[in-house]
Amino acid sequence: MPHQVFARVLSNDPIIAGHQVITCEAPTLAAEAQPGHFVNVLTAERYDPLLRKPFSVYTVDRDRGQISLLYSIVGATTASMSRKRPGEMLDMVGPLGGRIFQADTRPDTTHIMVGGGYGVPPLVFLSRELRLAQSAPNIKFIIGARRKDLLLCEAELVAAGVDARVATEDGSHGTSGRVTDVLEPLLLENSGLPVAVYCCGPTPMMKAVAELCLKLGVTCQLSVEVAMPCGIGVCMGCVLDLTDGRRVRCCVDGPVFEAGEVKW
């Protein structure tokens, strides 16, 4: 159930250029948040910027009651967040999101995570939850970035024993090209076997991944990113047109949709 939390910041450290991980003490959020959920953060004290900004949940530590967000410093809210020191408070509303990632339950499923940019963190969360729920889930993780120095979470995935593959647009690390250049051969290799794709990233990337999965008949869940002014389903600002003709709210009717549902 969404609620407002003033959470004590425990740490807030850079990971790569322009990206930080903020960890807060928020036991209720840590208990309730699942992969695909997001929280809305407010940093302005005098209404400018007025609206909260959404952040997908990166990790939770339920035992310690902690929640972490991995964010890219791009605007006023994230700039303010980046200046938060341990001991200061972060104003969050969450967990938000009506329809979130659903782990495929078919036996022996290969779970393929496809993440680009700050679409990677919620999939890291999903991978962690899969590993908690199953003894040895078969997870393949594809991380996309423009350049090597913009890659997120590769080292931690490798350290956790996850098969992590990389695509960089300039070829500075891993496969030279886009995530679909790694995904397509992987899907063909697993043709006929149970495979589920989970994707989060920039819209052009998600569109390409969705089209590839539809072409090859693979189920694909996408966490769609559009501007979500309220996050609680009442402002009607984040609407999305679906292929069945419905116009739905991304925040509470999503943000996770099946590949075939979204009208790009």
Partner: peptide, 21 residues
């Protein structure tokens, strides 16, 4: 209602054009 974008932020305010969905 109207096409998106339907809400944009301006200093200490928002502009909305939802179109009565």
């Amino acid at each position: 209602g109207n096409p998106t974008p339907r809400i944009v932020e301006t200093p200490s305010g928002i502009l909305n054009a939802i179109g009565l969905q």
